[in-house]
Amino acid sequence: MQTNKRREVAVSPVVGVMLMLAVTIIIAAVVSSFSGGMAQSTPKAPQISIRAEAHNNTDIIIDFNGGDTVSGGAITLKTFIPSGMYQDMSYKVNLSDSANVIYLPTGAGLNNCTTSFGYTSCTWYNIQPGDKIQINWADAFAVTSYGPMAPAVGDPVDIEIYDSASGKMIATTQTIILP
């Protein structure tokens, strides 16, 4: 008579696959936790609330109503014309030129400006809720040989503020051009 003898010295294939799957999941979790920690190291863009008032051929006044305190050197300001003769025109305002921008009240924004060899350099201070920026009309819109490409009285204009580091929009408002 023949006897069947079974040799059981190895792990079954099903158990082996389950062990390999468990090890793979553990390694993926460790790698994910490390990469997730690196992604959180980027600073968040500040959040601010603004209101604007635009006077035709004079100026635009931007009120900082609330939110985070920001450095004037850390933001980029753009004007955008959503309708009218110059529809879809966008223009980046040069905030670093002390002749273009006036900060109200004194002590906020751009101070301690010095001019050397025709170049003006300034020290930026923080802009906080309650501060205002006044921008000259001609500096707020693109200028051609025919004059500024600006909206007319009664037309809307969007004022957008971007975080210079991330490029993300941190505030926007729309105002109507006043006479």
Rank of each mutant, 00 (worst) to 15 (best):
A28P: 00
V143P: 05
K92N: 09
S145W: 08
F34D: 13
S96D: 04
T172W: 00
Q47K: 08
T79I: 09
M20T: 05
S121E: 02
G130S: 12
V14A: 09
D131V: 09
A140S: 15
V15H: 09
F117S: 08
P156G: 10
I102M: 10
Q47W: 00
N65L: 15
T58W: 08
P82K: 10
I25Y: 14
V14W: 01
S71M: 14
K92Y: 01
G73D: 13
G107C: 10
C113H: 03
V93C: 06
R51E: 15
V9H: 12
G130N: 09
M89K: 11
C113A: 07
M1K: 01
S33D: 10
G167T: 07
N56V: 01
D63A: 14
P105T: 06
Q128F: 10
K132G: 08
M149A: 13
G37T: 05
G130M: 09
A142R: 07
P129S: 14
Q40A: 10
I50S: 13
I81H: 04
S164V: 03
V9L: 14
P46R: 13
G107H: 07
S145C: 07
T58I: 14
A28E: 08
P82S: 13
Q174F: 01
D158F: 03
K92T: 12
A152F: 10
S12Q: 09
K44T: 05
C122K: 04
V143I: 14
N112P: 02
I81L: 09
Y125C: 05
G66W: 08
I27V: 05
V93W: 03
L19S: 12
G167N: 08
L104R: 05
V70D: 08
H55T: 10
P13M: 08
G147N: 11
T69Q: 11
I177F: 08
N57Q: 15
T69A: 14
A28G: 11
I135E: 02
A54D: 03
A108F: 11
S116Y: 01
V93G: 02
V9M: 12
S83C: 00
D139H: 02
A52K: 02
V93Q: 02
V23T: 14
V31S: 15
S166P: 06
Q174I: 13
I75C: 10
